[in-house]
Amino acid sequence: MSLLQVNNLTKRFGGLVAVDSVDLVVNKSEIVSIIGPNGAGKTTFFNMLTGIYEPTTGSIKFDGKNIEGISPEKVIDIGMARTFQNIRLFSNMTVLENVIVGMHTRTSNGLLHSILRTKKFKHEEDGCIDKAIELLSTVNLDSKLDEYAKNLAYGEQRRLEIVRALASDPKLILLDEPAAGMNPQETHELMEYIRKLKQMGFTVLLIEHDMKLVMNISDRIYVLDHGAKIAEGTPTEIQNNKSVIEAYLGKGA
């Protein structure tokens, strides 16, 4: 069953067509990757899915509902969580707090409960803390709960950002270049972790430049170039696709 269905999605910035009539389908429990050279429109595509940009034309159907033009804070509500290409953690908040902020839409303590420290407040806070610790233990960050996010090593920050997204119990998780800047060992660990996410029942949509990672874990791959989709298929199909090779290496390669 398709969880995300994108039809004919286009984004124009003035005369520039950043994303040009792209169709894309993500099924439940799949790992789908979007690849393409720099400037191909991958992040713009993500930004439309997550409500940061409004599409010029086209439709986005998520979990049976049309969501194009939805506001960013609603996106996570309906079950789509993301990470950012350039890490955007809450630097001066602790590891634990970062994850608990990720649970914002799944919690409801308001001003009154917070000021009066009611039973409901305590119950919800305890639940959040337990859940956050559990999530953090899956990426070996449970020993750094009270560390400020800015003090974490680069790879740890990447993992924390993924966990923060997971904290909202998303149906679909969008990872924007999670392996960027990672060393081979870290990339390998990340690969294992994304596999684990799939086993845990999450669906993953991934933008990534690291071909080894993409080819190893993707069920299906979409290739964008100059905003348009030039190929889609399994990793083996993509590796042998002529236009993909041309886009990456130029003609005659």
């Binding site: 960013p72 996570i76 953690l89 809450f90 908040m93 707090e97 902020v101 914002h104």
Partner: peptide, 17 residues
């Protein structure tokens, strides 16, 4: 925490709902 998240990174805060 929502206040602080806005101070730290408004776009990320928005993405957290």
């Amino acid at each position: 925490r929502a206040f602080i998240a806005i101070r730290e990174d408004e776009l990320a805060a928005q993405s957290m709902g």
